[in-house]
Design a binder for these strands. Structure first.
Length: 638
RNA sequence: GCCCACAUAGCUCAGUUGGCAGAGUACUUCCAUGGUAAGGAAGAGGUCGCAAGUUCGAUUCUUGCUGUGGGCACCA
């Protein structure tokens, strides 16, 4: 005779054991329709789960986040069911929910084709129409193993074998089909609805290990209703429109080619943007007390053996053999080179903290399948710096790095930043006392920043804890950019020392830090964040002068020359096209400002300005226009 | 690296069961000389990613390679 307590505190007394379904039916018909599962004392249960004791419950509908997740999980089951109906002999493995959808991994020799995907989706809809009833059973582990062995589901057997003995083994039936699953699930397949779509098929390793067999993974997305589904599909399309590879081509910024996969051919406009970012950062870093250095691209193998990189990453390094058989590695990191400069000459504690920055171009032989436009390349420029300091200085230095990073992100239009903190891994070097100190120092710096942060236990580098700075872009995607690592290892390995107050030789702590990480990657992110519409100061072509007709070419050229003298990146378009055509062409190329001149402007020494995204026209005095544009053409230094 | 798909004009793409390669756009020239998101006409433009194979004949079929895309794995 359970008393059922609702979230609003209301209590209903039932005479007998009661199920979620019975509860919602007492409340109302529409709720009974919408309900997915029920939360009983904080645990999600099937709607037909029998409640025997006094409990507090919450009805989960598909409008709740958990409800939508249940929907997606059911869709994954129905996907597997459809696949096994259509392709007997296919083994099922796992089928979890993911952001915006679900997937299911299958073991089958023949690949699924695009047509198969369509067939499967149609069959899924049939299964929804069939409205197969869900039934949950608890089996003995040995029974479950025997059963799945008998029906040839060998991966399920492996999964069951890893379930601990005190855990229940529940089997869900949807009609005749069954799957090992923790649940909970909807009452029947009809409750999923049809707002789902299979999106892609790809390969995925069993248990996520590349040594294992590769399965075929089918991805799908599933929503409450058609409208949400369509919103999602539109969102994907919008993201595609921002793709930096597409915009990079359209805006004539860069290209890639077969002869050097993963390396960027920067066109003039792209390189202008690249250099602008560096110019800007040079100023920021100089103000923050950094000195800029530059170290060789090629360093003898021996230095990489000393640093430990050869052993760990040797296979992923580009190397070069000289005619006299010496092996040089093209640097995959800047730090060993930087330490050489630190080591030059005796350093005193008075020199610390010593901050050395380097726009170092590094090469890494990334696996071919990892390459992705500017976001994952084999040759990239790090906005790197190494800070040599004492243990006591760690907190202060981490704080100032964090502040610098936040300032720079803000200047570039990113205000939504989260931090990821990773502490000591199991396999590590260095004394635990030093780890205590550096972890505490890093944490203190994070807390002082007042930013949201998550902790990744044991994910730090083997030589020290780290922070990763993650920014959220205009359409809500997260990108990991900056990083700050405390290094208790490399300075010692590479012989860095300083003379402390008491005259003794000590090994400094080294902080590795990158603001954007990779300039190439960051430019990719910037392009997508702004959908190509870069702020004026970053635009490679800030303005184009457009004469109305050829009679005004000379005036247009004069305006162009004056703009150029004022340090503005500009062009003049003397092509024999109508003004409508030119405006369309250059706005499509994301030029932020267009300056138009015709008879009116020539007579009055003015210019008419149009801004990207606006239909307004503004005719102003030429000198004033140049002054205005110049004043906008400045680094956003606070 | 692994699985699947794709590779045709500068760009975006079509090419129907193997028979001399197509459109739009950009480009060049000409006409029009224009007032705020595509004026008009003509011309030029391709070893159909590379290499083998099958065939009288391959952009089309087969195999290998390279690159790209979507994932997986990796990411100092």
């Amino acid at each position: 005779m359970p008393d059922i307590t609702f979230p609003d505190g209301k209590i209903i007394k039932f005479k007998n054991n009661v199920s979620g379904l019975m509860i919602v039916e007492t409340i109302g018909k529409s709720l009974a329709k919408e309900a997915c599962v029920i939360s009983v004392n904080g645990k999600l249960k099937d709607l037909n789960y029998e409640i025997k004791e006094n409990s507090s419950v919450r009805i989960i509908t598909s409008k709740d986040k958990e409800g939508l997740e249940i929907l997606r999980h059911d869709a994954a089951h129905v996907l597997a069911m459809a696949v096994q109906e259509l392709f007997p002999g296919t083994q099922v493995t796992i089928g979890p929910i993911i952001e915006d959808g679900f997937y299911y991994d299958f073991s089958r020799k023949e690949p699924f084709t695009k047509d198969d995907l369509e067939k499967i989706e149609n069959r899924m809809k049939e299964i929804v129409d069939r409205d197969e009833i869900t039934k949950r059973e608890v089996w003995k582990k040995s029974d479950a193993i025997n059963h799945f062995k008998k029906i040839g589901e060998h991966y399920k057997v492996q999964i069951i074998e890893t379930i601990s003995n005190d855990e229940e083994i529940s089997i869900y039936h949807h009609g005749k089909w069954q799957d090992l699953c923790r649940g909970p699930h909807l009452l029947s397949t009809g409750r999923i609805g049809k707002a789902f779509k299979l999106t892609k098929v790809s390969g995925a390793y069993w248990r996520g290990d590349s040594k294992n067999e590769m399965f075929q993974r089918i991805y799908g997305t599933c929503w409450n209703n058609e409208k949400d589904l369509n919103n999602y599909l539109t969102r994907i399309k919008e993201a595609e429109k921002r793709d930096h590879r597409k915009l990079g081509k359209e805006m004539d910024l860069f290209h890639f080619r077969e002869e050097s996969p993963g390396s960027v051919f920067w066109h003039s406009k792209g390189w202008t943007l690249f250099l602008k970012l560096i110019d800007y950062m040079r100023i920021k870093q100089k103000n923050a007390g950094y000195q800029e250095i530059n170290t060789p691209e090629l360093l003898d193998k021996s230095i990489w053996e000393k640093s430990g990189h050869w052993e760990k990453f040797g296979e992923l390094m580009f190397t070069s053999t000289t005619p006299d058989e010496k092996i040089f590695a093209i640097k995959p990191m800047n730090c060993p080179g930087c330490v050489q400069i630190f080591n030059r000459g005796l350093k005193s504690y008075r020199d610390l903290p010593l901050k050395m920055s380097e726009f170092g171009k590094v090469h890494r032989y990334e696996p071919s399948g990892a390459l992705h436009g500017l976001l994952r390349v084999r040759a990239f420029t790090q906005d790197d710096a190494h800070i040599f300091c004492t243990e006591e200085q760690i907190t202060q230095e981490c704080l100032s790095v964090t502040n610098l990073i936040l300032e720079i992100y803000k200047d570039l239009g990113f205000t939504n930043i989260i931090l990821k903190y990773s502490d000591r891994p199991e396999v590590r070097v260095g004394d635990d006392k030093v780890w205590d100190k550096s972890e505490a120092a890093l944490l203190e710096a994070i807390k002082a920043s007042k930013l949201e942060y998550s902790v990744n236990k044991g994910e730090g580098a083997f030589y020290g804890p780290k922070i990763e700075y993650i920014l959220r872009d205009a359409i809500g995607r997260d990108w990991q950019c900056g990083t700050l690592q405390v290094d208790l290892n490399l300075p010692g390995r590479l012989g860095a020392t300083f003379i402390d107050k008491d005259g003794s030789k000590k090994i400094p702590v080294m902080l590795h830090r990158a603001l954007f990480g990779s300039l190439e990657r960051f430019i990719g992110i910037l392009i997508e964040h702004y959908a190509g519409k870069l702020p004026l100061w970053l635009s490679p072509v800030q303005t184009i002068v457009l004469p109305i007709s050829q009679d005004f070419d000379d005036y247009a050229k004069k305006v162009f020359e004056q703009l150029r003298k004022a340090g503005i990146n500009c062009e003049v378009d003397l092509k024999n096209h109508k003004i409508n055509y030119k405006i369309r062409e250059h706005f499509l190329a994301k030029i932020p400002l267009l300056l138009i001149c015709g008879k009116k402007e020539l007579d009055t020494n003015t210019i008419t300005i149009r801004r990207l995204g606006s239909e307004k026209q503004e005719t102003i005095n030429l000198d004033k226009a140049i002054r205005d544009i110049s004043s906008q053409n400045k680094f956003p230094l606070n």
